[in-house]
């Protein structure tokens, strides 16, 4: 791609040192990343593999000890860069005595958002994450799932070009997980770049186009997810409504032609789809419950045309 990458690192290194400045741990060791506009990128790895450290370097919270790092073409510590970045940390570190609206209002004000535009965004985001009905309830009283939702909303308040999500679905029920994934997809469709770090591999597989797997601070595997998951020399044929007679004939033909008899298994739904179907059915039958309510649809201001309009206002 000819466009400048949204995130670019080359030989990125981060070494944690002790009190006497002696190297203690090499948390990130020569990581190369290149994220482009409109891409959903997954950063995977077990605990201590360097995911969070890499993210913190990209956010300008930690200083790299070597290599090159650029976010939106600039050093990550540049405040102008932060204006266009949204971040959801692995735990939502919120001010417990503020309610949902006050929380978003505070962060919105830091981005210079004022007046009716700010209030409109807050309402849209609360609607989007399903917290519009929480009223004056303080976020300190929120469940973990609700805190994640408000965390996601604050990450999007500035209509960012780059969204960094650290374990965005942790603590969410399957419904919330699906909504978050829908939001991530919708963000990418609108041209936002999303960097997603998660332990939940199914979530990453669902939404990411490319991934990098880290271990011991080093890149172990990297590339488009479809290519990485492809099993060599194995093919899959999917057919619908095949009766017994056709099935036998098909197997016989394949055996005759290929010299090996393939196995046939019915197609299964994944558990998430099944769960969502059951809940959707139950909702249709009994009406809305008392929990969060959202459909995973993007807030109005995050859509491309509105985004352009709002960005002009901020600048």
């Amino acid at each position: 791609m000819s466009e400048e990458p949204v995130v670019y690192t080359k030989d990125l290194q981060k070494i944690f040192k002790d009190f006497w400045r002696r190297p203690r741990a090499r948390a990130v060791d020569g990581i190369n990343l290149e994220l482009h506009k409109g891409e959903v990128y997954g950063l995977l790895g077990p605990n201590g593999s360097g995911k969070s450290t890499t993210i913190k370097v990209l956010l300008g919270l930690l200083h790299p000890d070597g290599g090159e790092v650029k976010v939106l073409g600039k050093p990550p510590r540049d405040v102008a860069v932060k204006r266009k970045v949204g971040y959801l940390p692995e735990e939502s570190y919120l001010y417990p005595y503020l309610d949902a609206k006050e929380t978003l209002r505070f962060y919105a004000t830091l981005f210079g958002l004022e007046g009716s535009m700010r209030e409109k965004r807050i309402d849209e985001l609360l609607e989007m994450v399903g917290l519009s009905h929480t009223g004056r309830r303080r976020v300190g009283e929120f469940s973990k799932g609700m805190a994640r939702r408000i965390g996601l909303a604050q990450a999007l308040i500035n209509d960012p070009d780059l969204v960094i999500l650290d374990e965005p679905t942790s603590g969410l029920d399957p419904l919330g997980t699906r909504q978050v994934k829908d939001i991530v997809r919708a963000l990418a469709e609108k041209g936002k770049t999303v960097l997603l770090s998660s332990h939940l591999l199914a979530d990453v597989e669902d939404v990411c186009e490319r991934i990098t797997i880290l271990y011991g601070g080093k890149v172990q595997a990297s590339g488009p997810i479809r290519e990485l998951l492809q099993v060599a020399n194995h093919l899959q044929i999917t057919l619908k409504d095949l009766d017994e007679a056709h099935r036998v004939r098909l197997l016989d033909t394949l055996e005759e032609q290929l010299g090996q008899r393939p196995t046939l298994e019915p197609t299964r739904k994944d558990l998430e789809s099944f769960f969502l179907e059951v809940v959707a059915q139950a909702r249709r039958e009994s009406g809305e419950g008392s929990g969060t309510r959202a459909e995973g649809q993007l807030a109005g201001f995050l859509t491309a045309s509105a985004a352009e309009e709002n960005r002009t206002d901020i600048e």
Binding site: L59, L61, K82, Y87, L94
Partner: peptide, 10 residues
């Protein structure tokens, strides 16, 4: 850790 959130803003 609230400072982490704050410092990622503008």
């Amino acid at each position: 850790k609230r400072l982490q959130m704050l410092l990622t803003k503008s």
